[in-house]
Design a protein around this nucleic acid. Structure first.
Ligand SMILES: NC(=O)c1ccc[n+]([C@@H]2O[C@H](COP(=O)([O-])OP(=O)(O)OC[C@H]3O[C@@H](n4cnc5c(N)ncnc54)[C@H](O)[C@@H]3O)[C@@H](O)[C@H]2O)c1
Ligand SMILES: NC(=O)c1ccc[n+]([C@@H]2O[C@H](COP(=O)([O-])OP(=O)(O)OC[C@H]3O[C@@H](n4cnc5c(N)ncnc54)[C@H](O)[C@@H]3O)[C@@H](O)[C@H]2O)c1
Lengths: 251, 251
DNA sequence: ATGTCTTTGTGAACGCGTGCACAAAGATGG
DNA sequence: CCATCTTTGTGCACGCGTTCACAAAGACAT
């Protein structure tokens, strides 16, 4: 039952650290905004501020792509947009299927920003016969019986799963068998996939629980004068006092 | 404009590493499933498999919470559910507001799994007068003019932003000024917040771009016989061949 | 009580990611 | 052509996170 790849080598991909890859879209977004304002060049300091990262980190990230900057001047915005887009594979079109057209699936289908970066919703798939043929975001929903055919006919390699958790693994298996090699999973399930298939998950519930953890800590700090309430998190955290640890053990 | 905290100490929170905190919800989910099947105890090996992590990592994670296992037997499921819930602050109720009731905001409001873990949708807020008063998921949408009052009246400390990116920062500022100290941001924007406020972001576009990066690499590998196509990613990646790097520099 | 067998808890090694600090590169002005 | 000034690219050190491997702890049978 739901194993999921245990090991994550987290090794370099084409020499580019995974952490860097995860930040490239952030840089790209900031650069695109600059491009739209017709800003010709930008310094690492400015761009880093816009992307919310350390400037040294940004420079090191770019150094993995090559030496695209000019000392004393900065980076050419248009050129960098192109380089990062190419590196991320956004210069080509990526057909995507969304499986499970409920609340969330429909919202994603309606999401405009989807297509803005080379991702095209190739098909919407649902198991509910009542949904079949219905138009969502201008696209006719197709029945999941045809999943394999839809995937192969459209050359889909990226699948988005927005089904209930109970069927997510089996939907995943079918997608993979049909040729999908990248999956974005919104269902709260650990997916098990063969080697060579990438899975990324988006889990609202987990995010909220992490926030709750820090929230609880902040609330605790107020009463116990341990550390001054000066603390910044963006995604991280720091120390905190204990509270109560009822050392009761069950039978 | 939009700076975002640059530094992330990523230090221990109450002695618990941030990476561990992020996995606790995963363990909790697996444990809850076991609990529902009335499984009394579970070994680190079994639980790790269910959560999709390394068993040594799981044991080390639990060791930060205390010694809750019994050697030769494993962990008491119910007890662990309680301990993790308490640690994450899920034994109390967290009122949450969602700002921006469009496609995504409405989907989140309708999401059942929201309330299942101590999170309660206290209010839905939108700037569109046409939305005001409309019922979404059984809750009347309120106008954003009343944001400050809604937050303080309900003692809300967690806010979810699902507005268009252009207004996300100003909505964030108002939430923070009103007393919100944790924000879950779905808008593709880097939010700038004062110290003491946690921000977590969920960005569909970034996830897809990361998948595209690896997808592109896989496609490239097929043609160039560099490394046998045996490779597993869950969230990571590995090496890959180059391709073409047109060393053209712009003016 | 003693031995065996299972499973935890953790010491230690290692690798990745981060950020400081600075030398080198190149632009710009005289 | 030289001096100055800005900004990149990176060497280096440090800390967090991961994983291996194993001793200790306890259950269970005899
Ligand atoms: N809605 C949210 O905000 C939200 C947030 C976080 C996580 N999630 C998760 O996302 C998933 C979808 O949530 P939702 O609110 O849209 O649920 P939903 O019930 O509204 O939609 C699920 C859809 O999947 C379809 N479906 C069921 N089995 C299928 C199958 N085998 N093949 C294809 N389609 C199938 C159903 O017909 C339905 O249309 C759930 O796993 C949920 O836990 C949702
Ligand atoms: N829909 C998706 O699947 C999806 C996916 C990824 C990211 N996003 C992001 O999530 C956000 C919302 O997406 P959406 O598709 O729901 O957009 P939407 O346009 O359907 O909804 C936005 C809502 O915010 C409201 N709003 C605007 N300004 C406001 C303000 N100042 N205060 C309060 N409410 C305000 C609007 O009235 C509207 O109801 C966007 O930033 C989008 O980029 C959406």
């Amino acid at each position: 039952m739901a194993t999921g790849r245990t090991h994550r080598p987290a090794t370099r991909s084409r020499g580019i650290p995974e952490a860097t890859v995860a930040r490239l879209p952030l840089y790209l977004r900031a650069l695109t905004a600059l491009s739209e304002r017709s800003v010709p060049t930008v310094s690492s300091e400015e761009l880093a501020a816009a992307a919310g990262v350390n400037s040294a980190k940004l420079r090191k990230d770019f150094s993995y792509l090559g030496s695209y900057g000019t000392r004393g001047v900065g980076y050419d915005v248009e050129y960098l947009v192109y380089q990062i887009s190419r590196e991320l594979g956004l210069t080509q079109d990526w057909p995507v299927v969304i499986v499970g057209i409920g609340n969330l699936g429909a919202a994603l289908a309606n999401y405009g920003g989807f297509a803005s970066r080379g991702f095209r919703v190739a098909a919407l798939i649902d198991a509910d016969p009542a949904m079949t043929g219905r138009q969502v975001a201008g696209i006719a929903v197709q029945h999941s019986d045809d999943l394999e055919k839809i995937v192969s006919d459209n050359g889909v390699s990226i699948g988005v799963i927005t089904t209930p958790p109970g069927v997510a693994q089996q939907v995943c298996d079918r997608l993979v068998a049909a040729g999908v090699t990248s999956i974005l999973n919104f269902a709260p399930t650990v997916l098990s996939v063969p080697d060579g298939v990438d899975v990324r998950k988006v889990d609202l519930s987990i995010e909220l629980q992490i926030l709750a953890f820090h929230e609880q800590r902040k609330a605790g700090e107020e009463h116990e004068g341990t550390v001054p309430p000066v603390a910044a998190h963006q995604d991280s955290s720091e120390q905190g006092p204990d509270g109560d640890v009822p050392a009761v053990m069950p039978a």
